[in-house]
């Protein structure tokens, strides 16, 4: 499974999000890769099942063949866990 962690520039916020998402996925025992990318790259990609991003960027990612999950608190592993679990059923 492929996930994207997306922020405006692809080097700061998205990298933090990727790290914590990977931590959660390991705990949930889900095999997946998470790429950190900037917004423009994410908009051009079609290979991810799930896109993790911040509430501000959700609108700019609509229309992609991926489920968009907005994470509010990047260091709240519980929030990331709950939202990923809900999405992965």
């Amino acid at each position: 499974m492929k996930l994207l962690a997306v922020c405006g520039m692809g080097i700061g916020t998205s990298v933090l999000l990727k790290m914590n998402a990977e931590k959660v996925l390991r705990t949930l025992d889900i095999e997946a890769t998470v790429d950190a990318t900037d917004l423009a790259t994410a908009q051009a990609r079609r290979d991810a099942q799930i896109i993790l991003t911040t509430p501000d960027l959700v609108d700019k990612l609509q229309g992609l063949p991926a489920e968009i999950i907005a994470i509010e608190h990047f260091f709240d592993l519980e929030e990331i866990t709950q939202k990923l679990e809900r999405s992965l059923g």
Binding site: C7, G8, G12, T13, L16, L17, L39, T53, T54, P55, D56, L57, K60, H73, F74, F75, D76
Partner: peptide, 11 residues
């Protein structure tokens, strides 16, 4: 200014 206050990553 361009992408909004997404850099606010936690409270």
């Amino acid at each position: 200014d361009e992408h909004g206050p997404y850099i606010v990553i936690a409270p």
